[in-house]
Design a binder for these strands. Structure first.
Length: 516
RNA sequence: CGGGGCGUGGCGCAGCUUGGUAGCGCGUCUGCUUUGGGAGCAGAAGGUCCCCGGUUCAAGUCCGGGCGCCCCGACCA
């Protein structure tokens, strides 16, 4: 059976991932090392994710703003932990002009900036500077803002969508009167992320708190949503941080309380990035290419007219366009159905495979026979293969297809979620009680570059939640198995066994996994 | 930034060990045929063999130095 890709998940997951990105026409590498070109189909997915999330961000009382790309270097000196975390990956602007010297276009040495500017790796510092001016009284709180932006983090090793030097994201920044309110905000936005991931991306996640060593630089607490990819690895799909008063202290963000005292604000920040698209690929993709959840598919129903250079072509095309127009009048997920007629020249079979790789949920083929019978022949991308290793197609009367389109899209959306949810739930082992058992399950760290390791899921186990040097020891032991602590799930059991690492009384359960 | 692998028409690759006219598959273009599940035949276009230097009568091939990509590690969303 010929598949849509010449790479499989089974044989080489990393190679398969790259093949999907390329063949689904999502993105490509650029002349700039580590930075990607997001192509229309990939950017269309991002725009839909943005739309869903932006609506929720506003519904929870936040307003959008825009802060500068370039941040004075001195701003980063204010919060020690924060600088430490980002110092090694910052792009720095030092000059403001070019000049032709000896016939060479070069940086003008005469045009050196007095203070270097860094390209934002995140905006806590420059937004905090504004918060300092914006917050005067308890009446100004909570201050709830968000920005959609690009950021740069100079990465050593990049992979399209998953880790690039420049990426797109949303960063929310808020200031609150007290810890309780700020912590509630942190968890509220974590829940928004869970909802978008699960409802829109059909990507089930586990919400939880990151261990101390995995916190955002400068944060008091970091929460994440973690998703399981088809190779069993975890992907941190979003983070939400309770920053305590450390940024408020560093940047003097204070307010006068009702009783007249000057108090420090408690701040939060939270973000999701274009990495989510990588998560969608690795959650739903198959050996024929991408499979898109309908809610984030730039086109939900792609209609391929079967044109044969015959007089009836005009009729077929008209039928296809009429179908698309009528589908656009149908609502799915409270929005008009996105339907496209692929009028490009070429054989319909080639065009069909092109769309299989790109992953719209429904592909319709319309030929003279459909026109004559007043019917629609459709393929479900989530159930591509039928009997006899042939692509499965279904015929239905045109009116019936249109009437059922929204329900079919909803069914595909929930079906993809259910499939991913079963994989997540079915691959978290909770029966491992000792480090030896953990080592036995994950096996020795691969000493060679075997790209095709057997599937390993996650382990949910109990630990004593050590900190400092004791935590370092745990981290190192896990590292020997190429494992990391993903998070401590928010939903915890009432009774706990002993710590897997130390045998001490357990404090909480954590998820341990290999990760992106 | 360390270890390994790889850079050859748009894409995927062979050729390199043992130097001697640049190849294959897919795609593209033209024509004819075909026509509802990845078409057939015939013809055509398309390559500074990543870059710079060296050895040689002769370098895709050998040597040196760069750059880029991929995998593993360190770092990270």
């Amino acid at each position: 059976m010929e598949r849509g890709l010449n790479a499989t998940r089974e044989a080489d997951f990393a190679n398969w991932y790259q093949a999907v990105v390329r063949e689904a026409d999502l993105a490509e590498t650029s002349p700039v090392r580590g930075a990607m070109i997001i192509k229309p189909w990939g950017y269309g997915i991002w725009e839909l994710i943005q739309g869903e999330l932006d609506r929720r961000i506003k519904a929870t009382g936040h307003q959008n703003v825009y802060f500068p790309l370039l941040i004075p270097l001195s701003f980063f000196a204010k919060e020690a932990t924060h600088v430490e975390g980002f110092a090694k990956e910052m792009a720095v602007v030092t000059h403001h002009r070019l000049a032709v010297i000896d016939g060479q276009l070069t940086v003008d040495p005469e045009a050196k900036l007095e203070e270097p500017l860094v390209v934002r790796p995140t905006s806590e510092t420059i937004i905090g500077d504004a918060f300092h001016r914006w917050v005067r009284s308890y009446r100004d709180l909570p201050l709830l803002i968000n920005q959609w932006a690009n950021i740069v983090r100079w990465e050593m090793r990049t992979r399209l969508f998953l880790r690039t030097s420049e990426f797109l994201w949303q960063e929310g920044h808020t200031a609150h009167a007290d810890r309780e309110d700020a912590l509630a905000e942190t968890l509220r936005m974590l829940e928004v992320y869970r909802d978008v991931a699960e409802r829109c991306l059909a990507m089930p996640v586990v919400t939880g708190e990151k261990p101390e060593n995995e916190r955002f630089p400068g944060a008091d607490a970091t929460y994440s949503i973690e998703a399981m990819m088809q190779d069993g690895k975890a992907l941190q799909a979003a983070t939400s941080h309770y920053l305590g008063t450390s940024f408020a202290e560093a940047q003097n963000i204070r307010y006068q309380s009702e009783t007249g005292e000057l108090r420090l604000c408690h701040t939060t920040s939270w973000g999701i990035t274009t990495r989510l698209i990588g998560g969608v690929i690795m959650t739903h993709g198959d050996d024929d290419g991408l499979r898109l959840p309908p809610m984030i598919a730039p086109q939900q129903i792609v209609i391929v007219p079967i044109l044969r250079d015959r007089p009836e072509d005009a009729e077929v095309l008209a039928y296809a366009e009429g179908l698309a127009a009528e589908l656009s009048g149908v609502d799915a997920f409270r929005q008009p159905v996105r339907a496209l007629v692929d009028k490009r020249p070429g054989r319909s079979a080639d065009k069909r495979w092109d769309w299989v790789r790109r992953g719209p949920p429904i592909i319709v083929e319309v030929g003279p026979r459909d026109v004559a019978a007043g019917q629609v022949t459709s393929i479900r991308r989530d159930r591509l293969w039928g009997e006899n290793e042939r692509i499965a197609s279904t015929g239905a009367p045109r009116s019936e297809f249109i009437a059922g389109a929204a329900a079919l899209l909803a069914e595909i959306q929930s079906g993809l979620y259910a499939e991913a949810k079963a994989r997540l739930d079915g691959n978290i082992r909770a029966d491992i009680r000792s480090f030896d058992e953990l080592a036995a399950y994950f096996g020795p760290a691969a000493e060679d570059d075997d790209a095709n390791e057997p599937f390993k899921g996650w382990v949910r186990c109990t630990w004593s939640k050590p900190s400092g040097a004791e935590l370092d020891v745990v981290e190192q032991r896990l590292k020997s198995l190429k494992l990391t602590i993903r998070n401590a799930p928010l939903v915890q059991p009432t009774a706990l066994g002993p710590c897997l690492f130390t045998g001490k009384p357990g404090v909480e359960e954590i998820l341990v996994a290999r990760a992106y």
